[in-house]
Design a protein around this nucleic acid. Sequence first.
DNA 1: CCCGGTTATTGTCGAGATGACTCTAACATG
DNA 2: CATGTTAGAGTCATCTCGACAATAACCGGG
Lengths: 246, 246
Amino acid sequence: MDTDCPPAERRWPEPRPAGYDPGAFTPFAVTVDIVLMTVVQRQLKLLLIRRGRPPYEGAWALPGGFVKPDEDLATAAARELLEETGISTTTGSLRQIGSYGDPARDPRMRVVTVAYGAVAVRLEEAPRGGSDAAEAELVPVAEVQSDRLPLAFDHRRIVDDAVDRLRADLETTGVAHSFCPPEFTVRELREVHEAILQTELDSGNFQRKVTGREGYITPTERRAPTGERGGRPATLWRAGRPEDAE
Amino acid sequence: MDTDCPPAERRWPEPRPAGYDPGAFTPFAVTVDIVLMTVVQRQLKLLLIRRGRPPYEGAWALPGGFVKPDEDLATAAARELLEETGISTTTGSLRQIGSYGDPARDPRMRVVTVAYGAVAVRLEEAPRGGSDAAEAELVPVAEVQSDRLPLAFDHRRIVDDAVDRLRADLETTGVAHSFCPPEFTVRELREVHEAILQTELDSGNFQRKVTGREGYITPTERRAPTGERGGRPATLWRAGRPEDAE
DNA sequence: CCCGGTTATTGTCGAGATGACTCTAACATG
DNA sequence: CATGTTAGAGTCATCTCGACAATAACCGGG
């Protein structure tokens, strides 16, 4: 979020290496920002936090913050997400989107931010469990990309890049699963695809495609409870191959 | 390259914003590293520089260096490439690969590096035109990926990521063109694909594919000079649509 | 219990993409 | 002019994918 300034625990690892001159290069602040996405009500949404101080005071921004002295970038992203939203993720599930370092992107000082994409399973409303008490909200990605909801800093561009990346990953990886609970119906999986790609998919063709893809999903013996208006009960599936314990 | 320490021109932009405490966060060094790739003799090669000082003194490393106080990341990458190799690129042709910030990746201090991919047209041998006099060499990517040629820092991983990215981009973008001169034959384009994908492609099918792809390449009236062993002269093509002036 | 409504899943069919392969065109050399 | 070489078009079986049935399995109401 480029906001909060944690106390400097120590400026440099000690002992300072011989022959190293701390004044010989430009110091940067390095932050991480997280684009946490979820699909709810057939809509792709992302988590935003309202800034409590200038610049961009009162504006919506991505959760994030400074990387600590002995922390990996992905670790910092997972920590910030936990602190600000209470959502726990593994560093392996975070995907690096890119880095943003325009000299003017933060009016206070020179900041380079590394953006990470994360996925939550059907997050209905913004969590309040974060230790950093701050107003959080889940907003549709369309609200941001249509400029109806402006963001602080260059976060709009980060969101665009994260969504582009998510769309590309949808075809080539199994990201779609991480939007669903451990057991899910093909319909749920299809609605995730539809929300992300902003398109309608033929249910029959989609079924054929995902069930035919080797090692993509495996059926269970269980059925999902039927809906309000009846209909044939859907098979519950799990991600990956049969052996996979995921 | 994580090596050279340029003089700090100024540590922070002046005037220092009110309410900003320079000790309140951890300062990082931010560098850029460039993976410059080219296809020569049907081989994908990349440019390396021999380090002249510890750590990893004498080891091969990617060209790169510190980002300056008022410089964008991509601008820094283009500048470092020019300084160290004499090769001039536009920031638009640089592709950001990712950022690497393991706390232990540089034994001297906390460094985050942003890696960029760049492409040169049939670079036969390592250029000596850089103002930073350093030993440079073009080595086959296979030498690096087979561990026959170890690299400094985490540059091996950066190379892996850059090559993965290049392979993905090959299908979805027009990167392949940038390995070729403005006018090229379909054969040259195919050999670029083959070198990058490490596979043999059927010449007829490849011809059909690239000529059939709308707006991908356009024929000229000119023919390439025939080879040593004769053969029908090949049509010269240009990248993009007919109107494009590229 | 039978019937229409609803959803899940399978099947059919045609258009286009792809891989293996053949065939022709246009040059060179002797 | 025969022969070798490369460029590029053509052939054909296979695969993929979208549009569109058809069938299966549940609901609630008569």
